[in-house]
């Protein structure tokens, strides 16, 4: 579904992405892991067209996304730290995005709104919300329009365990619908039941991109986190 070829991106002296080649297919739930500053967010932003690559191409359904914008209507994006205009209320933000997307109201996925009980908070200003609530709004917006692709940047960071559980359930459901899900996270244990593939990045490079089943088989570990340390050790040696 998304094919990334020779993607390079430099911020000043920092090489954020070095020749990244990836193929992300529909139906996969992919974890993007790696140490801080390894280029996860840059990669996600590149797919969204927020960061513009220096070199290389990103194909979305076979089409280069350069200078395109319509493809983003098929992506639900949840940023690491969602920041919204201070003076707007939750309702206004959600309404605005709905209007901007021109998405039929009756087809929106209000599941998370209900589960997070957002309607009770609808008239609160964004500036008055806690970090967790803000994340809930981000989650709602990402899942509102039944997109084919989810790009979730540290989705559970800042959420309380119950909210995180709700989000995980939602991701499971979407995965079951055969959608492509790209998650970056530090908390690998949380993702154990979710993910089907894993991309490990370091210093802007993809160290490996494997199916989780293959990883488990190769390393003989059940836990994803363990498989990674194992893989890294193997690569070092």
């Amino acid at each position: 579904m998304i094919v990334i070829e020779n993607l390079c991106k430099q911020f000043g002296k920092l090489q954020a992405l070095k020749n990244v080649n990836l193929t992300l297919s529909a139906g996969a739930c992919i974890a993007l892991v790696g140490p801080n500053g390894c280029g996860k967010t840059t990669l996600m932003k590149s797919i969204l067209g927020m960061a513009l690559p220096d070199k290389g191409t990103i194909l979305f359904d076979g089409k280069d996304i350069k200078n395109e914008f319509a493809y983003r209507s098929r992506i639900g994006y949840m940023p690491q730290i969602g920041r919204y205009p201070d003076n707007m209320t939750i309702k206004q933000v959600i309404d605005m995005i709905k209007h901007l997307r021109h998405y039929p109201e009756n087809q929106t996925d209000k599941d998370l709104i209900t589960r997070y009980q957002i309607n009770d908070l609808a008239h609160k200003r964004m500036s008055t919300l806690s970090g967790g609530t803000t994340q809930k709004v981000s989650a709602v917006l990402a899942f509102l329009f039944n997109p084919d692709v989810y790009i979730l940047d540290e989705p559970t960071a800042g959420l309380d365990p119950i909210a995180a559980e709700i989000l995980k359930d939602k991701i499971m459901e979407e995965k079951a619908k055969g959608k492509l899900i790209l998650i970056s996270s530090h908390l690998l244990n949380e993702l154990d039941e979710l993910i089907t593939e894993l991309i490990f990045m370091q210093d802007g490079e993809v160290l490996f991109h494997k199916k989780t089943d293959d990883l488990r088989n190769e390393t003989g570990e059940a836990k994803i986190s363990k498989t990674i340390t194992n893989m890294l050790k193997k690569q070092m040696s």
Partner: peptide, 17 residues
């Protein structure tokens, strides 16, 4: 400058920059 988040939010949406 204060709208940088808002702009960021919009850019991730299917709208021309």
């Amino acid at each position: 400058y204060n709208s940088s988040e808002f702009i960021e939010l919009l850019v991730s949406q299917p709208i021309k920059r």
